[in-house]
């Protein structure tokens, strides 16, 4: 099976993130970058499926040159090779533009199964799987908490508020996974060494056959009008429990008309 896992490099959620004043895009210089945590579950699922059914796992990432660090990490977990779409013309792409570019690359490299994280921790849109399925005209199997395939058809549990839906489709398809699906492996020392020699193909927009007019900040179908730091919350009342903490909490709730 030819499996492609989409991996995004994101700013560390533990560090403070800001937007650049000039163009309201994410200030990627000011915070540490790492693999979108949810994509590690996508990589793990890809590796497990390849182990069970044979085939190759290709990492696909669109992002600045620095994203190569995240690509290496994905390779050190065990993926076979990688494609890195990197071009200054991509800067500022919104989800729609990102999906246009990634769909173009997927069309070029081919796939039986594309696996994504359920969302990126920076943009938090959780829409790329749907966008890719729409653009590629293949079934959308998103928010999977369980996956089974025989190489022809694929069955998943699609997570929902009320529990889950059992969903079935035939391959090729786009899959996104939630963190409950597995426990991502840590790269072994051997894996880290081996990753250094694995092939990473870099593609420019021209290489990928993407029309530069359809991606990047200028092609964005929405614009930021303004942004501002949220005013800090007013300091609240903190009491120490002296055997009456529950009572005081109830008084507060009553004063606020919650009870």
């Amino acid at each position: 099976m030819n499996i492609v896992v989409c991996v995004k490099q994101v700013p560390d959620t533990g560090s403070e993130r800001t937007l650049k004043a000039a163009d309201s895009t994410l200030d990627r210089e000011s915070s540490d970058a790492l693999i979108n945590e949810l994509d590690e579950y996508a990589i793990e699922e890809g590796l497990r499926l390849a182990e069970a059914h044979g085939g190759e796992v290709t990492i696909l990432s669109m992002g600045p040159p620095k994203a190569s660090e995240s690509i290496r990490k994905a390779l050190s977990m065990g993926a076979d090779k990688a494609v890195h779409l990197v071009d200054d013309g991509l800067a500022g792409s919104d989800a729609l533009a990102t999906s246009e570019a990634i769909a173009a690359v997927l069309g070029r490299i081919g796939f039986d199964l594309v696996i994504l994280g359920s969302e990126s921790t920076d943009a938090r849109m959780g829409v790329l799987a749907a966008l890719l399925a729409e653009r590629l005209g293949v079934p959308q199997l998103s928010f999977a908490s369980k996956v089974e395939t025989d190489g022809q058809t694929i069955k998943i549990h699609r997570q929902a508020d009320y529990g889950y839906d059992k969903v079935e489709a035939s391959l090729p398809a786009v899959l996104s996974v939630v963190e409950k699906i597995n426990e991502p492996r840590y790269p072994s020392f051997k894996g880290i060494m081996a990753a250094k020699k694995k092939p990473v193909e870099t593609l420019s927009l021209a290489d990928a056959g993407v029309d530069p007019a359809r991606v990047g900040l200028a092609a964005s179908a929405s614009e930021v009008v303004s942004f501002a730091k949220r005013p800090p919350r007013q300091a609240g009342t903190i009491v120490k429990d002296e055997g009456d903490g529950g009572g005081k909490a109830a008084e507060f709730l009553a004063a606020q008309k919650f009870i």
Partner: peptide
């Protein structure tokens, strides 16, 4: 493309 074969209500 993607057919729902069953809804499982858990909660």
């Amino acid at each position: 493309g993607a057919r729902v074969t069953e809804r499982v209500v858990q909660e």
